[in-house]
Amino acid sequence: MIRRALPLLLPLLLWQALTLSGQVPPYILPAPLAVAEALVADRALLWTHLLVTLSEVLMGLGIGLLLGGGVAMTTSLSPRFERLSRPALVASQALPVFVLAPVLTLWMGYGPAPKVAMTVLLVFFPVASGLRDGLASTPAEVLDLARLSEASPWRALLWLRLPHALPHLGAGLRIAVTYAPTGAVIGEWVGASKGLGYLMLMSNARMRIELLFAALILIVAMTLVLNLTMDRLLRRLRM
C-alpha cells in the first residue's frame, strides 16, 4: 500500500517542503495542506462548479460521439461523401480548435453552449477518424460475404463493418475522453459564470490561490475518473 502510494506521496512531501522553505511565496505556490483545507472548506462551492463542468463534458462527449460516429458511418456508406468530407476532416484536425473558443463564446453566449461546442470539437475528430479507419479496414474476405448475399451497404455496415470497427471506435473514445475536459475548461476560461474553469480564474483574481489549486485538482481528478469509467465500460463491451 505504501509502495503504491509513494509515487503520489513523494511529490506532495517535496511540494510541502518547498513551501515551508520560504523560497516560494504562497501566492505563487500554496502549501498542499492549504489546498486540502480549501478542498474541504469550500466543498459545496467546488461541488456546484464541478457539476457544471462535468455536465458540459458529458454533453460534449455524447454529441461528439453522435456527430463523429454519424460522419464516419456516412463516409463508409457513401464514397462521394468520403471524397467531399476528407479535406474538411483533415483540415479540422490541423486547426488549433482552442483559437475558436472566443468566437464560439461570441456566437453562443456565456451559457454552457460554447463550452459544449468546444468539447464536441475535441471529441469529434478522434471518434470520427477512429471509427472511419475501423470501418475501412474490414478484411476483404469478410466483405466477400456482403457481395455474395448482395447485401445493401447499410446491412453490410451493420453486420460486418461495425462489429469489426468497434475496437477502433473504442481507441478513439479513450482519446476523446482525455481531451473532453480540456475543451470545457477552455470554454469556461474565455467567458463563463459557472464551472471549474471559471472558478480557477475567479480564485486567481481574488488571490485565493489555494482555491485555484483545489479547482485544478478537481479537474485532474474528474478527468481520471472519466478515463477509468470509459475504460471499464469499453472493456465490458469488448472494445
Partner: peptide, 15 residues
C-alpha cells in the same frame, strides 16, 4: 461478436 445462431443466419440477415 455474434452468437453461433446469428452467425449461421448471417447471409440471410445480410439479405
Amino acid at each position: 461478436r455474434l452468437s453461433l445462431s446469428a452467425n449461421v443466419q448471417l447471409m440471410a440477415r445480410l439479405r
